[in-house]
């Protein structure tokens, strides 16, 4: 299940052991490519909060986290950012980044 975040509820949604955030934007082709891959991972991997946030509408988050590329995936453990990656990717690559959050 994907959770749609806004600047207002963002911090509350990170209050979990593992969270991944897909920071996407309007008119972003690479974001469209990543979306179904991200959704498939969310539907497959229990125990991780999969969150999406539209940076075009929530630019404060982009400023706060120093995001200058879309899509950017942010990985959090207990609310603390532990990893990030920019750009679209296939499922194997996404799994690699999720594993980094889980097992390192």
């Amino acid at each position: 299940m994907i959770i749609q975040a806004t600047a207002e509820n963002f911090d509350a949604l990170l209050n979990t052991e593992y969270a991944v955030v897909d920071c996407y934007g309007d008119f972003c082709g690479a974001c469209v490519v990543l979306e179904p891959i991200y959704h498939a991972a969310a539907a497959d991997l229990a125990g991780i909060s999969f969150i999406e946030i539209n940076l075009t509408q929530n630019w404060q988050i982009a400023e706060r986290f120093g995001i200058d590329a879309m899509p950017t995936l942010l990985f959090f453990r207990n609310g603390k950012e532990v990893h990030r990656v920019e750009g679209s990717m296939d499922r194997a690559e996404l799994n690699r980044h999720i594993a980094q959050m889980l097992y390192n």
Partner: peptide, 11 residues
């Protein structure tokens, strides 16, 4: 979390 069958790198 371990995900049998997914081949998560390292796990």
């Amino acid at each position: 979390m371990i995900y049998p069958g997914r081949n998560m790198p390292g796990a």
